[in-house]
């Protein structure tokens, strides 16, 4: 079954004197349990595409279907709720709340979902353990390295048991050792938990690990290693 379906998707930004086509009539399917990398040069539309799939932005044309739901039919409030319950996000950097500990950051999404304290703390600890951060559960982001912060971000993205995780350049600010560690964690979660990952990158080390690679250029799919 296809988890994500994009039908003739376009996103055009209108600026004062010109139009910028970020995504150009793009159609794509992503299945369950995939570990897929969106690659391409800067400005090719990777982040825009992830924003459209994540319901953070609305397409100019075409439609985004996630788990059988057409996102264009949801209003802003419904989209927030959809993101909260169905999608996990990992951003490039600075994506943890600085005043919360690693445990509280991980439990944040579950708390927003209304889960009880005991249950969410138990799951948050399990997730931190899964990303190798259990021993730093009470550290605040400022006390963690960039790689450790991204591992907590992955744990947080998994907290809501989402259909899939969208990660925008998750290793962009990490050194090679931390990049390798983070990728291993993501791959392990993909294999053991069946979590679908769709991430953008231009890091060859990340591309190597991806099972499916989609090359974008000028907002279109240039090449797809394993089209669905």
């Amino acid at each position: 079954m296809n988890l994500i379906e994009l039908h003739s998707l376009s996103k055009i930004y209108t600026e004062t004197a010109s139009e910028v086509v970020a995504v150009d009539n793009l159609s794509l399917r992503v299945g369950e349990r995939e570990f897929t990398a969106l690659v391409g040069p800067s400005g090719c539309g990777k982040t825009t595409l992830l924003n459209l799939i994540g319901g953070l932005d609305r397409p100019t044309k075409g439609s985004v279907w996630v788990n059988g739901t057409d996102l264009s039919t949801l209003n802003d409030t419904q989209l927030v709720d959809f993101r909260l319950h169905r999608i996990g996000f990992v951003f490039q950097a600075y994506n943890l709340v600085p005043v919360l500990s690693a445990l509280e950051n991980t439990a944040l999404i579950m708390e927003l979902q209304g889960m009880g304290k005991r249950e969410r703390e138990k799951r948050a600890m399990e997730l931190l353990d899964a990303v190798g951060m259990a021993d730093k559960s009470h550290h605040r982001p400022g006390q963690l390295s960039g790689g450790q912060q991204q591992r907590v971000a992955v744990a947080r993205a998994l907290a809501s048991k989402p259909s899939f995780i969208l990660a925008d350049e998750p290793t962009a600010n990490l050194d090679s050792k931390n990049t390798a560690t983070l990728l291993d964690i993501m791959l392990d979660l993909n294999r053991s938990e069946g979590t679908t990952f769709l991430f953008s990158t231009h890091d060859p080390r990340v591309v190597e690990k991806a099972r499916r690679t989609i090359h974008l250029e000028d907002g279109r799919v240039l090449q797809d290693s394993h089209p669905v």
Partner: peptide
């Protein structure tokens, strides 16, 4: 702004 945008992205609604 960055942090608030991130929170809104991951599911903090406008009411909260």
């Amino acid at each position: 702004r960055h942090e608030l945008g991130m929170l809104m992205a991951v599911g903090l609604n406008k009411h909260k």
